[in-house]
């Protein structure tokens, strides 16, 4: 359903040199599939998501490659066609639900606005549909969410309102950018359960962006690992958890999961982490971008960038260990 080929997004921040935030990215999402995009902050995850909706800021000076949504090339659409697409066919749940709702409009009205933007219906009819949706989603506090202003709601309620807004027009793809990062753990698992419920009920495809493999493992079928604007590994969720290939993926998983541990608390144990930071957008990269932080670096690594190696079970990885 969604086919991204050779997508490159370059920014030109004011007064500075051009930088590539997303570099030659290929991936696809089948309809109804839930795909996770995993990586640290600053890896280009959000830029990738925004470029799918063509919502990049004005400093994005170059977008190359192709994004096919069904038979439509999104990079070739004009502003009014994009507007009809956004929210109706592809919608997005933005980071930080705290600030992605209009502070001076009732939540119910805001959700209804999305329907009105895409269907020629009256205000009352839209509001009724919103009420029906909130009930259908099984929100115990549907009435309260509907009538409240955003500041009167808790973080979890706001996030649910934002999710309702994203699915109210039954889009075929929902992009969720760190939808649970700002929430506390109990609310987090409620929201994740809601996503699983939506997946089952609406057959919506999801692109779920997160920096936490633990969260992705709970909701997605397949994971794309992103580093320095490139997709460095791609595999089914179960495979990636069982047998990660790329040293970066291994590092990320080790930060969260303890292999073969009983899960009991063990104080004063050194928490594993990946040393160093991802390269900044302006840093020059020679060879593999992960090389400076890689525990398994070899001599080849600085010579050139590894190619993507296709493995069995539609896995892919960019690392010299596997012949890239």
């Amino acid at each position: 359903m969604l086919q991204v080929r050779g997508l490159t997004v370059r920014y030109r921040p004011e007064g500075r040199a051009e930088v590539a935030a997303v570099n030659q990215v290929d991936f696809s999402i089948a309809s109804g599939e839930a795909v996770g995009l995993l990586g640290e902050s600053g890896c280009g995850k959000t830029t990738l998501a925004l470029s799918l909706l063509r919502l990049l800021p004005a400093t994005a000076c170059e977008v190359r490659g192709s994004i096919f949504f069904g038979k439509t090339e999104l990079l070739g659409l004009g502003e009014s066609e994009l507007r009809r697409l956004r929210g109706a066919k592809i919608s997005m749940i933005f980071q930080e639900p705290e600030i992605s709702l209009n502070p001076v409009m009732r939540v119910g009205e805001q959700i209804a606005e999305v329907i009105r933007a895409h269907h020629p219906k009256g205000r009352q009819q839209c509001l009724d549909e919103v009420r029906a949706l909130l009930d259908q989603l099984g929100f115990s506090d549907a009435h309260r969410i509907f009538n409240a202003y955003p500041h009167q709601l808790s973080g979890g309620q706001r996030q649910r309102a934002v999710i309702a807004q994203a699915i109210v027009c039954k889009p075929s793809l929902v992009i969720a950018d760190e939808p649970t990062t700002a929430l506390d753990p109990t609310v987090q698992s409620e929201i994740l359960a809601l996503f699983n419920d939506l997946k089952a009920r609406f057959q919506t495809a999801f692109l779920f962006i997160s920096h936490s493999p633990a969260i992705l493992a709970k909701v997605v079928d397949r994971i794309l690992v992103m580093y320095a604007g490139r997709i460095v590994e791609e595999a089914e969720t179960t495979q990636i958890l069982r047998h990660p290939l790329h040293p970066y993926t291994v590092g990320l998983l080790r930060c969260v999961f303890e292999l073969g541990d009983e899960g009991a608390f063990r104080p004063r144990r050194v928490l594993p982490s990946i040393p160093g930071n991802p390269p900044g957008p302006t840093d020059l990269i020679h060879g593999c971008p992960f090389e400076p932080r890689c525990p398994e670096r070899m001599e080849d690594c600085t010579a050139r960038e590894p190619r993507e190696v296709k493995l069995e079970d539609s896995r892919g990885v960019r690392c010299f260990k596997y012949g890239g």
Partner: peptide, 17 residues
């Protein structure tokens, strides 16, 4: 410049609205 405007645009709300 605020996020809720970007999210409104992301939901396809017409520019005039």
């Amino acid at each position: 410049d605020s996020p809720f405007i970007r999210s409104a645009r992301g939901h396809g709300i017409p520019e005039g609205r």
